[in-house]
Amino acid sequence: MANNNDSFGKTLGVVVGLCLVCSLVVSSAAVALKPLQEKNKAQDTQKYVLEAAGLTDKINGDVAAVYNQYIEAKALDLDSGKFDDSIDVTSYDPRKAARDAATSIVPADDIASIKRRANQVLVYLVKDESGQIDRIILPVHGYGLWSTMYAFLALDTDLNTVKSMVYYDFSDQGETPGLGGEVQNPKWKALWPGKKLFDDQGNLKLRVTKMATNPDYDIDALSGATLTSNGVQNTLAYWLGSEGYGPFLENARKGGVL
């Protein structure tokens, strides 16, 4: 019996030891790889910003170099609609800020189902070869069919004419390919450039609809993906409203932003 107990104890000791060693290896690898993971994540975001900026043709292997040449990230306080230069844009994470009650709000009318909205977001100023602002990229997100969908809405300097709409991330399980995932279909993305957001009275007129009859404002809904199409519409309604970029757009119309 003693021999059996000794054998069991030794086996248990070996198992525990192996578990500790494996945990140490995994933890060390995670720590060592974190900087690389963060770099890849940042580069991936930069790549989609450049796509929204219409600058993918300038990428020749060095995404960061093209991004740094043409893109300026700015922290925007959504309540005031003004830039906040006190925030370090290289380290600020709006998604993290949205999870903190001290740096976010619960939307009064959460039509886009975002749950919380960060007080400050990052917007991107796109500059041409001479350094003049060519377009402004506004990050937006909202719930689609199965998940929260993140996109970059690029506008002309009039802040009313759409230059592009680029969906780049689906949190959680993601949208179903062929349904919600169709927001990444090049044919659908090609429908956005040139559309207008607001009418002359400042009312949101752009629609994602099955009855696209107005060439200035209407985007054809995604075939077979009604809930995702509704999600895109709700996303625009929230982020272009008073709790989103509304104050920023109003300041811009008065000439007080750019």
Rank of each mutant, 00 (worst) to 15 (best):
K82G: 10
D84A: 14
D85V: 12
S86A: 13
D88C: 06
P94Q: 01
P94I: 06
K96Q: 14
K96Y: 11
A97W: 10
D100N: 14
A102S: 13
T103C: 09
V106L: 00
D109L: 00
D109R: 06
D109N: 08
D110Q: 04
S113E: 15
I114V: 14
K115H: 10
R116S: 06
R117W: 08
V121K: 00
K127P: 00
D128G: 05
E129C: 03
S130V: 07
L138I: 12
G142E: 05
G144D: 09
L145Y: 11
L145W: 05
S147I: 07
S147W: 08
T148V: 13
T148A: 11
M149Y: 12
F152D: 02
L153Q: 11
L155C: 05
N160Y: 02
V162L: 04
S171Q: 15
Q173R: 11
P177H: 07
L179H: 13
L179T: 14
L179D: 05
G180W: 01
Q184D: 08
P186G: 01
A190P: 06
A190M: 09
G194F: 11
G194R: 10
K195H: 03
L197S: 03
L197F: 01
F198V: 04
D199Q: 12
D199Y: 10
D200L: 09
Q201K: 15
G202N: 00
N203G: 01
N203R: 11
K205M: 13
R207G: 05
R207W: 13
V208W: 04
V208T: 03
T213A: 08
L222K: 02
G224W: 13
